[in-house]
Design a protein around this nucleic acid. Structure first.
Lengths: 273, 273
DNA sequence: AGGTGTGAATTCTTTCACAGCG
DNA sequence: CGCTGTGAAAGAATTCACACCT
């Protein structure tokens, strides 16, 4: 994998499945809600419903953490909140830096859920000199030149990249060089990082495309024409093995979006892979 | 659901694994970049690297779509771009509505990558009357009252929820009632929807928590204290089976979620720049 | 009774490794 | 030869279903 290796020597049997780790925050959120309502205990069934999973999965997940429930009763909400928080490392404070204070970066900076879970925006960084000093969400934006110093001084280990795609890898490299070991990438690019650095990505475009896939399927099946959708007509346009031609012409393929370079605040994307 | 058994390897398989579907957008992006650089063909190895996966996985993924490569040569970039686009349903235009035009909603509306892939922001909707008429990203915001009409009139089937958590389910219900069948949820809540409706969620907080988990593990392992239980930090604080009492006292469990925002005070966030 | 905790069975993914076509 | 396409093996993740504790 070019993007951060998830391969871990599993030095210990204490290994919690990745799929389980990804669900812990979900349980935590549901538990927090129950806690606020002063609910003392929950059964796996109730909690599972609140978290949007099935009870068997939830119990199995919890079994990796330990036996924190009481048979015949359920789980103690407060206790479980604590255990999961600890397991996720939320009992400590994580300073975070956000690089790229555009529309998205600003939205992230203003995101309340940030502080509510042990994360603290330690700094906002942007390459635009005009942004420097300007406060966003109450925090003054600092120039990229300060990046290394900011990270070092604040002992930041988690960085959020919200820059245009074209600048992402470069920013990533600097973050890593400065000591960051976990990155949340919002830029539509594959980041390559050295071993030991984790990268998680969030991409609106990808999510929408996945939805479109299913949406398209629904439409086709609804019509009762399971045979490769409308394709029937002029489908299967381009020759399968001919040298190389663009699908152009043919059917109603919309002007094949050949430029994903979004104007409007977007940026130069092209970058040496 | 009409489960079309995956019998023989018909050129068009009904069942493309979900994991594969989730990667198609990644391949598409890499291919688009190659296309822009006028690269005619790519080997599975090259494309895999560009997409951040390994070649075996990529070839297997493509095998579900059909045999679009040429042995000894590789894949025709343009041809593959077309095939994947078609498979993802991007050869058609998908009108999308964004509900909740706060910081995040505005950022999403301004996101260039939107239009570049067959998606078109058909409307921006917000519950705040003061927002009505005000243009965001060149599109006038409409009031929630118009929601149903907007969706019906524009034949929208994909909705993006960027409202506070407290309003999400309600908005979701209305979207679904109005005909939406695919939802991208940015609100930190589990949405319940009827069968047939797809929901994908994006949650900044969850991603950060997952990173924190790994980050914490790195730190511990680095110290050379792999044995978890080793009461590393403050030891195993609260009793495991005692009635039910918060982790309170003991150790330094930081005010867990001190200053937790009000009910629906926070909004999620996410998306690429 | 009422639920948890979990081995076992099942299903989904990833990885191997190699036959075979261009 | 080089590289794709793929059965088959290996590894996760999910689901079953039930023994077992309170």
């Amino acid at each position: 994998m070019a993007t951060g290796r998830t391969h871990r020597p599993a030095t210990r049997s204490r290994g919690i499945p990745e799929a389980t780790v990804a669900r812990l925050p979900l349980y935590l959120r549901a538990l927090t809600a129950l806690s606020e309502r002063s609910v003392p205990t929950v059964s796996s069934e109730e909690l599972a419903t609140a978290a949007g999973v099935n009870s068997a999965k939830l119990r199995k997940d919890f079994s990796y953490l330990g036996s924190y429930g009481t048979r015949g009763v359920g789980y103690d909400v407060e206790y479980l909140v604590y255990q999961i928080s600890r397991e996720l490392g939320l009992t400590q404070d994580w300073p975070v830096v956000i690089v790229g204070i555009g529309n998205l970066g600003a939205a992230l900076a203003n995101y309340g859920g940030f502080a509510s879970r042990g994360f603290r925006v330690a700094a906002l960084i942007d390459a635009d000199p005009a942004m420097a000093g300007k406060p966003v969400a109450g925090i003054p934006v600092q120039h990229t030149d300060e990046l290394e110093k900011i990270i070092t001084d604040n002992g930041v280990s988690i960085g959020v990249i919200a820059t245009p795609a074209g600048a992402a890898q470069q920013v990533c490299d600097r973050l890593v060089a400065a000591g960051i070991t976990s990155i949340l990438n919002f830029a539509p690019t594959v980041l390559s990082v050295p071993d030991g650095v984790d990268v998680r990505k969030v991409d609106l475009s990808i999510e929408l495309q996945i939805l479109a896939f299913h949406e398209q399927r629904k439409a086709g099946e609804e019509v009762g024409a399971p045979e490769e959708a409308a394709g029937a007509a002029g489908a299967v346009p381009p020759p399968p093995v001919t040298p190389h031609r663009a699908p152009s012409g043919a059917s109603g393929a919309p002007g094949t979006d050949s430029g994903r370079q979004g104007p409007d605040g977007d940026v130069p994307a092209v970058m040496p892979a």
